[in-house]
Design a protein around this nucleic acid. Sequence first.
RNA 1: GGUACUUUGGCCGAGUGGCUAGGCACCGGUCUGCAAAACCGUAUACGGCGGUUCGAAUCCGCCAAGUACCUCCA
Length: 488
Amino acid sequence: MEHKLYIYNTLSRKKEQFIPIHEPHVGLYVCGPTVYGDGHLGHARPAITFDILFRYLMHLGYKVRYVRNITDVGHLENDADSGEDKIAKKARLDELEPMEVVQYYTNRYHKAMEALNVLPPSIEPHASGHIMEQIEFTQKILDAGYAYVSEGSVYFDVEKYNKAHHYGKLSGRNIDDMLETTRNLDGQSEKRRSVDFALWKKASPEHIMRWNAPWSEGFPGWHMECSAMGTKYLGEEFDIHGGGMDLMFPHHECEIAQSCAALGKDTVKYWMHNNMITINGQKMGKSLGNFITLEQFFTGNHQLLSKAFSPMTIRFFILQAHYRSTVDFSSEALEASEKGLERLMEGYARLQKITALESSSVEVDGLRKKCEEALSDDLNTPMVISALFESLKAINMIHDGKETICAADLEELKAVFKLYIEDLLGLKMSIESASGTEPYQKAIDLLLNIRLEAKKNKDWATSDKIRNELTALGFEIKDTKDGFEWKL
RNA sequence: GGUACUUUGGCCGAGUGGCUAGGCACCGGUCUGCAAAACCGUAUACGGCGGUUCGAAUCCGCCAAGUACCUCCA
């Protein structure tokens, strides 16, 4: 690869040059959703962030295998000892089979992702479909001596692991602090230490989702699925593991410990974490109950939303901030993004209509380089967008006849805009352009042509009436030099 | 309590030891019968106090405010 990509590795807390383990192949694993409820804005962030990475790696010529899991078992509601499985709880409340819950929300998640123009991953494994792998993985850890069986459940022996390796190296904490802060929570536990976590849980009698294992009839611990499925599809060592920052501890820390204990080596080379979306400065999340679902954004059906926002607006809004920064949601911020996106896309459409002249009065060369440098510098999408907006000015000036562009420059500009807007940032033209059937469109055109005639005759009363009434119906009428344009 | 991070103009949000980020809003202009839309343009900034430096919003220290993780969370 002639171009160098730098990504921030949470492990080293530095930007590092990305060098694949087995070029040209790249293995990418990202923690997907637990499908017990509708996806919210927070789910869109990692999906979009790693969608950009996925697209960019492919653009650079790598053969990428992108694995994003669906968690449908083992993710508990509260403390590992007493919590109820999230899926099972939802199923009980809705009187459904757990797998009905899983299917329903998985479908809805897919629909939302498609609307956001997030490419499907190469493999989307379900935890429930990989119970055997998880049992085997657990057995490996037991064989290695880093786990113990207690009352039919299997727990990871964190203290023992920590003697040989550093438990806490990803999140930057040490075991003594953790033992201190968690000591009080520990009462009736079957665990030796409060920091130990479950690899396999024996199912209580009322627990529906259960499988046979050497230790008991039960289900796998939450962290186990990613270790088992990640290594199954990407190998014992793979390139990039991503997810939300809130998963850093304990989820990813446990994953590192599990994989290292079972395989005797570190599995992941680069750890990447996207930051959180906040609302009034506070993290948006299920536990805080302050989340807005993606569907609510698309329909505008939420008290904090001034109106509906298109999936592309959401995508653009997220891309306008760097993935490692928190981004604060507000209706105003989204409206600003919406307008900005519209301007960008209209400029992009305008670019297609520009005719080339003999020579260029504008500079086109720098854009591709700027975008490339920005994206390869730890996915700096805000910089890419900024560069595009700067070129947008030139496009508009050319359109107005104030600047000129030659054929070669025009081709380059079109190519770069397409590459970055469509292929890499994944922004699509708004769907609104296709409004109504042909007879319907012709009827509107007819009305506006009548208005045009009225204008020629200086019959302002008729002209304004048509304009005002159409506006009242929700049409946007634009007068141009030689006619009109309209949209809903 | 422990650990980490953040603090940029009216709002959102990049960046960086010296050169305009960008978007939205505002204001001014072009266009228009008037508007709207569109387009162009100007302005406004780097939490506070010290230090390093020829020079810091950018590095260091202290202080303040806020957030996250330490329990489920993308």
